[in-house]
Design a protein around this nucleic acid. Sequence first.
DNA 1: GTTGAAACCCGCTAGTA
DNA 2: TACTAGCGGGTTTCAAC
Lengths: 158, 158
Amino acid sequence: MKPDSQKIDEADIKLLSILQTDASVSLEELSSRTAMSANTAWRRIKRMEEAGIIAKRVALIDPEAVGLGMTVFVAIKTSDHSDEWLENFARSVSAIPEVVEFYRMSGDTDYLLKLLVASIADYDRVYKKLIRSAKLSDVSSSFAMETIKFTTAVPLRI
Amino acid sequence: MKPDSQKIDEADIKLLSILQTDASVSLEELSSRTAMSANTAWRRIKRMEEAGIIAKRVALIDPEAVGLGMTVFVAIKTSDHSDEWLENFARSVSAIPEVVEFYRMSGDTDYLLKLLVASIADYDRVYKKLIRSAKLSDVSSSFAMETIKFTTAVPLRI
DNA sequence: GTTGAAACCCGCTAGTA
DNA sequence: TACTAGCGGGTTTCAAC
């Protein structure tokens, strides 16, 4: 799966830049845009897929279009907990589909979650599920009024 | 682009669930997994693409694999600013590739950014770019120690 | 060993009943 | 909704450097 961390060169970055913006471009177009032959492009892509650099190809759904217009950030502080509590916490929270991002933080808050929900009522439903599943106490939520930018494109540099 | 907000039924949700997890599945496999003909699956997908429900197809890059192992959240508070300042702020911050998410918030913090950077030094570079581009004052950063969950799959429900 | 070109063949796309 | 035909593109192979 991860054969000794292959180095990525400029040509790879060109390919990745295109594919992480639009994965539906053909090898032909890819080759014309990168000044390499189609099967060189194909070989490089395949190598990066096998190396895990390209994790997967997905369809991105517009959350608004399916009625998920509300983004909520949930900050959680935990007082000392055992390892198994933490493990269980991570597992049960990860299993909630509305939790789309979940980080262990340094500083003030210990955990930060990003939720995608339909409405306040929907948020309340998920919130209850959340505190029930892990028996949390110190939880505070912030609501996003507007998503100014959201991209899955990572900042690639030479 | 958005012809009168078509309703999404269960069959559509089945398709979306698969495609938002793995967009590389063939129509044949899609049809066998959803009990609809390949042709029907294709037509539904095309309709959802045209309706903007499926926004795009992208390759997801593992940030760690390309040396972007650090996720930072930046909370910004603004004291009263003019409309044009706000507009310029949104535009210049959005243009920074390391800013992968950018929200206008309710409550304590006015804006929340998510950054993908390589290291502390890299973070510092982006931070400087940030405060220079929009002349910010009240900025506080929190570092993610661990990404427990990150998914682009939205919580689809019947 | 690495690169490019060309053939193969599968599967996407679209037209028709 | 199902069938079918065309064709575009991913995959493989082979030859050349």
